[in-house]
Amino acid sequence: MTAILTEPVGPSLEIDDLTVRFGGLVAVDGVSLVARGGTITGLIGPNGAGKTTTFNACTGIVQPTEGEIRFGGRRIDRMSSARRAQIGLGRTFQRMELWETMTVRENVQLGREAVHGGRRPWGQVRSSAAERADVRERADRALDRCGIRELEDAVAGDLSTGQGRLVELARAIAAGFPFLLLDEPSSGLDPKESAEFGEILAEVADRDGIGILLVEHDMTLVRACCTYIYVLEFGQLIHEGEAEAVLASDAVKTAYLGSEA
């Protein structure tokens, strides 16, 4: 049985003194942060600040040169990406990875079924009646949470980017991950869609107790939902604090938006 099916909600993601070097280039330089369970933590910064590299170290695409990453107290930086998901760390993709030939409901349900399937060959072949009920019920709740119930029979490949982002989110919620890593979910969305997406994220954190690390470029979304924010520049953490304070600080304005702001 995978941990995700049993563990209580609320583990935190901790990054401790993370350094990532590509050859001579230091992409991330001694970054430490804590993203608490049940809250939305923003990781912002200008292009090339090391946001994506930090994100990739969390999902397993890049290996840390130094430092460690812990989730719920367990070291994850050497785990495979499937293993990270099995212990409860979900993610979405900046370039959407929907199952395009399947309907929205099938997408959301498979999100949970894949969790049940996991590493067990027999678990991947067939499902028990209880599991099927669990899959349906969680999919229902996730579809409602993301407000895409009326789209459930649409084929995922036919959706707009905004709708697709919601399906990806619903899929990760249905899977039952206590913590989600979101990679620039606002890219491809207009400001109205970003704001709506932010409201849904806030609900996900408040009502479902899911922790979220949001790596984001777009201020509309960050402002709409983050409670705590870390700011990166040139691979280093330059600022952190409660969202309101950080967004208002001069240091961030200068670093993030250039001196003319």
Partner: peptide, 25 residues
């Protein structure tokens, strides 16, 4: 379930992987 997993594998193995399924199996 295997049928759903296979269709998922065809459309996006990365997404299947990201939901904890061992796609090698």
């Amino acid at each position: 379930r295997l049928g759903h997993m296979l269709r998922g594998l065809s459309d996006s193995p990365r997404a299947l992987d990201a939901h904890g399924a061992n796609t090698n199996i």
